[in-house]
Design a binder for these strands. Structure first.
Lengths: 167, 167
DNA sequence: TTAAACTTTCAATAATTCTTGAAAATTAAA
DNA sequence: TTTAATTTTCAAGAATTATTGAAAGTTTAA
């Protein structure tokens, strides 16, 4: 396998994996491209490499910046913006975990909390609803704690935190 | 909040959360409905509760069965099938982790392995591609090990395995 | 200022994914 | 068998989500 083929394969694999961490294909592909690039790229370069429109590139790069995964770089004497992504996989994983937690897990915990706190009317079905949502709430809180610990450990959280478990 | 409102809120929250664990809305809603039901339900009952078509119900129930989350129950003297879901959240989480690992993480690990193993032509960009995909491969293997340990621990893996980390 | 370089927005369109519903298939009782 | 109950399939249509591209907006240099 030559460079070009390997690169394309990486971008497309990473792109289709986007759903796994909750982002769309273009966004994941842009991140993938920057992740294996040896330097920061311009909008034009991203458009050309991925064969996507200017609007699409602009919107998705902004979203990556919102996620804190991509940074804008300005070069002296140049008008256009250059973009680069976090290159350290551990830090990347940490940021993604943090964002997903904030965007998705927290709101669900809140809702489960509300539902599991309704007052029982004594019927079987209400008891079951309370019992089951309580159980989910407990699980979600456990996962939340784990993520929180992991997120606030800037250095090497995967190896230090998760590897402890594996041993 | 009354039972009906709480139930609907739970089903819709769980439904929109489907994407988080990689399944579609109807599938997640059916699972949610069964999860808080006090007894196994028929196709007709699921259709009526969720206001979805027979075909949709049939296909999504089959998928839940494929995932190992839902079981078919046959009642003596009755023709129609009854469906129930795994009620234990720990076991549910374990099954979901196992399936996502098998369906999504394993194929990615294989691809990253292939890409990171191409022979270097000595150029910067090839070195970078190899270096970065190797790093991702290592991360994926770490997550894989964690899941594998967790998955093969039938009882209470979340509390026993993950809580260790949180302490 | 003005003008050129560049970025963002957003309505229209395309692509993808989900849902329906009726026909075909299956199952089991008569 | 035949028939009725039930489930599955799948093409067509609906709904959702992603993408385009051109106009509007912004920025900076002259």
């Amino acid at each position: 396998m030559e460079y070009k083929e390997a690169k394309d394969k990486f971008i497309s694999t990473w792109g289709s994996l986007g759903t796994l961490w909750g982002i769309n294909k273009a966004m994941a592909q842009i991140q993938a491209l920057l992740f294996i690039s040896t330097r920061a790229l311009t909008t034009e370069e991203i458009m050309a490499e991925l064969q996507i429109s200017r609007g699409n590139t602009s919107m998705n790069v902004r979203q990556l910046i919102d996620w804190g995964i991509v940074k804008k770089e300005l070069k002296a004497g140049e008008r256009k913006e250059y973009f680069s992504t976090e290159k350290d996989v551990q830090e990347l994983a940490r940021i993604i975990a943090e964002e997903r937690n904030r965007r998705e897990i927290q709101p669900v915990i809140k809702t489960l909390q509300e539902i599991s706190s309704i007052k029982s009317d004594g019927t079987e079905k209400t008891k079951e609803l309370i019992k089951q949502t309580k159980a989910l709430h407990d699980l979600a809180k456990t996962v939340d704690s784990l993520l929180d610990k992991a997120i606030n450990r800037k250095q090497n959280w995967v190896s230090t935190t998760l590897l402890k478990v594996i041993k």
